[in-house]
Amino acid sequence: MNNIFKFKKFNILQNNSVFKVGTDSVLLGCFAEIQEAVNILDIGTGTGILSLMCAQRNPNSQITAIDSEINAYSLALENFKNSPFSHKITCIHSDLNSFVCDTKFDYIICNPPYFKIYEKLHRKHPVARQQIKLNYNLLIKKSELLLSEKGKIGYIFPIENEQEIIEMSNHYNLFPKHIIYILGIKNGKIKRVFLELSREENKTTIENFVIEKRSRVWTDEYKNLTSDFYL
């Protein structure tokens, strides 16, 4: 069954075979410091939402979107074609391990699978949600190889994985530039982390971000952050 998620400047066609638009991706697409990036890589594009958000935010960028799943690749292609940004986005059917490109990217963005493969398989979207084809080590190792000298990487993931990812990143000489701890609700627990990495080992900017004041009542900071996208 198909449905459409409508944003101000583009629509996302969704279906049950591809992981749907969620708050994590919207936050990642808004937080990422892509303003100066010429070449952007979207790893595991899914519906294509991150590529479309990047295209809207940075008119001077060229975006490469990859996905290993044929259903996601086909859906993203359709969403790109139906958007005003189709000329800016190239979509490739490939997993990250096999992906080869002469271009070095100024920004690499990814909402990676969160769950380890030894956990119970998700009935829906196992590749999008579990580290079957893409684990954190492969993601960081390959991102470092594809990153330009002054480039940055933006990920979002559960708070439980923060130390593991920072340690892996340091191993590949990538260091935290910006960390945002995301609380679903005011005075609640931190559930997600936005992590922006670069090759520069300098002071890290750390912030907290709250999505809801109370159930289904958005904070002003969330409404301001997403105002260019949500209707």
Rank of each mutant, 00 (worst) to 15 (best):
T23H: 03
T23A: 00
T23C: 02
T23V: 11
T23I: 14
D24R: 11
D24H: 08
D24M: 14
S25H: 06
S25I: 00
S25W: 00
S25A: 11
V26L: 13
L27C: 01
L27W: 05
L27P: 04
L28Y: 10
L28K: 14
L28A: 10
L28T: 09
G29L: 07
G29C: 04
G29Q: 08
G29P: 12
C30W: 13
C30V: 09
C30P: 13
F31A: 01
F31V: 03
F31Q: 05
F31M: 02
A32T: 13
A32Y: 06
A32V: 11
E33Y: 11
E33M: 12
I34T: 09
I34S: 13
Q35E: 15
Q35L: 14
Q35S: 15
Q35C: 11
Q35A: 13
Q35P: 10
E36M: 12
E36D: 15
E36H: 15
A37F: 07
A37S: 14
A37M: 03
A37R: 01
A37V: 03
A37D: 02
V38I: 10
V38W: 06
V38G: 11
V38P: 02
V38S: 14
V38A: 15
I40A: 01
I40E: 02
L41I: 11
L41Y: 08
L41S: 10
L41H: 01
L41K: 13
D42P: 08
D42W: 04
I43K: 01
I43S: 07
I43A: 03
I43N: 05
I43R: 01
I43Q: 04
G44S: 05
T45D: 13
T45N: 14
G46K: 10
G46L: 09
G46W: 05
T47K: 08
T47W: 10
T47D: 03
T47E: 06
G48H: 06
G48C: 04
I49M: 04
I49T: 03
L50D: 02
L50S: 08
L50C: 00
S51W: 14
L52Q: 07
L52W: 06
L52G: 12
L52R: 14
M53L: 09
M53S: 07
M53G: 01
C54E: 09
C54W: 02
